[in-house]
Write a protein that binds this DNA or RNA. Structure first.
Lengths: 278, 278
DNA sequence: CGTGGCGTTGACGTTCATCAACAGAGGTGG
DNA sequence: CCACCTCTGTTGATGAACGTCAACGCCACG
């Protein structure tokens, strides 16, 4: 396949992101100062590794620390009593597993790795400290969590009102834009290490049916897959197929008004710091 | 139907809730002081009314103020390009419409009324003020928003991996528990002003199919419906049918550890207030 | 007295699930 | 280095769950 060779070539030219993926993502919300970026880098510094196909957090556990995913892919999922599985979310670099859930008494779902991953554990204390002292980063993290919620809502729309072709097209588009937001694409090409079974468990379909639809997409020249590298050859067509509108990802940033508001908080905070002799 | 008469009788004995529904809900997270409750009552005091079947907020608008739903029922929904509709969430008394979304540039879905509603508009300022000064209420609101997110995830599980009977059973159970949490049930009986079409648009089904399943449930003696009053006659059976586990609603409250943490913040805050001469 | 929304029921069609079998890739132990 | 095995992808045959289309009754409302 000439096409495959071609997009591998493209992919190999993807520059390694210079900033950490969380920073990259948050920059879609609002500009961050050098100090903010430094702080985020420190936050992302500690490192822990997990192999593929293990649970980082299991259903029923008490949520403890928070993890920042730095590399690899993971998922939130739940097993049904009859052994079937529903994947709720894919986690990609720059995503936080459970910035919030530590408020809850016990996990209602599991988080498992899909590929080997590198994560930065973040303690509840440092996160709460951040919230108390850095309004702009807090707002950005909050925004990011709103974005995640919007993605959940979009999944509901997809599962409720799109057919198999629409669901798959929509999911490929969402993954493309999310990867773009953290600098992990080259044009419409990115690495997608999912099995067809995992896609099926995400979209409420069977692996067999996912296979048939993907075959169809390939034959129509909409996508190409090779060595887990996915090319969306006709993004427009795919988006049309799904009725996909990337608005729900809210990549356009905050309104000027909201941004000003958090800037003013930031200034107030700096004032506090000075008066406290910091 | 003797049964219908019976459950109407039951329903009429439901006492009017003394506390406002938001307070009732938040008490599931942690105890609140008298001052906290007073503050929540003030928050809920302003009033605005909307008739049934109108949009309170429409897709594409800039999210402005936040609303507390005090009475009636509303929904978040989205219209698809082909005219079909997906309902994402039902809002019942005690729910906040978009505590968070004001961080986003534009709404990616609409909020519409199902029945006439009474809401309390809350300004961004008073909400932010609360977050700055009342750690315990803030934590409770945050918890409530986590709970909403958990409900979204559960919907995804439902749409992805349950059949029509399971979905409907699950939705009835969820609505029962949510109403219970704000004191709007009497045993397994509560008022549910939804049409079958609305249920269908929530669960990714057609009104026709919802009708057939409900008929079946009625014939099996699982439920009874009369004048929009719903009785879950065999909750156990319904929950078994859906594989329903109310754990995801997190009604058990916060862990002792989390609660202590926010109590300590509260104390620190009171210290600040005193030293600032308030 | 019409009219429109909602619930209800029947006949029929389509999408997707289920079951089954096999091929290729990659990993592991002998 | 090869045999073996498991996981993933692939394809075909069959069936069930749910959607679509259509019609009618009921009730609230103007």
């Amino acid at each position: 396949m000439a096409r495959a060779a071609e997009h591998r070539a493209l992919y190999s030219s993807v520059p390694l992101p210079t900033a950490n993926p969380l920073t990259r993502k948050l920059l879609h919300f609002a500009p961050l100062s050098g100090a903010d970026k430094l702080l985020l880098d420190e936050l992302a510094d500690p490192e822990e590794r997990f192999p593929a196909n293990v649970d980082i957090v299991a259903e029923g556990m008490v949520p403890r620390s928070v993890f920042l995913l730095k590399e690899g892919m993971a998922m939130r999922y739940r097993n049904m009593p009859d052994g079937r599985r529903q994947i709720m979310t894919f986690l990609i670099p720059g995503d936080l597993c459970d910035m919030h859930v530590f408020l809850l008494k016990e996990m209602d779902h599991s988080i498992g790795t899909i590929t080997p991953v590198r994560v930065a554990p973040i303690s509840r204390e440092s996160l709460m400290g951040l919230f108390g002292s850095r309004p702009r980063i807090s707002a950005a993290l909050w925004w990011s969590s709103m974005q995640e919620e919007a993605m959940l809502r979009e999944r509901i729309v997809s599962l409720g009102r799109r057919d198999a072709r629409g669901r798959i097209a929509y999911m490929l588009c969402e993954l493309l834009w999310r990867h773009t937001a953290v600098g992990l694409t080259d044009g419409e090409v990115f690495r997608l290490p999912l099995t067809q079974t995992e896609l099926a468990d995400t979209l409420g379909l069977t692996p067999v049916h996912v296979n048939r639809v993907l075959k169809d997409f390939r034959q129509q020249g909409l996508i190409a897959i090779n060595q887990r590298i996915l090319s969306l050859l006709k993004v427009e067509a795919l988006q049309a197929l799904a009725g996909f509108n990337k608005g729900y990802l809210h990549l356009g940033g905050a309104s000027a008004e909201v941004r000003r508001y958090f800037d003013s908080l930031e200034d107030a905070q700096r004032g506090n710091d000075r008066s406290a002799g910091t």
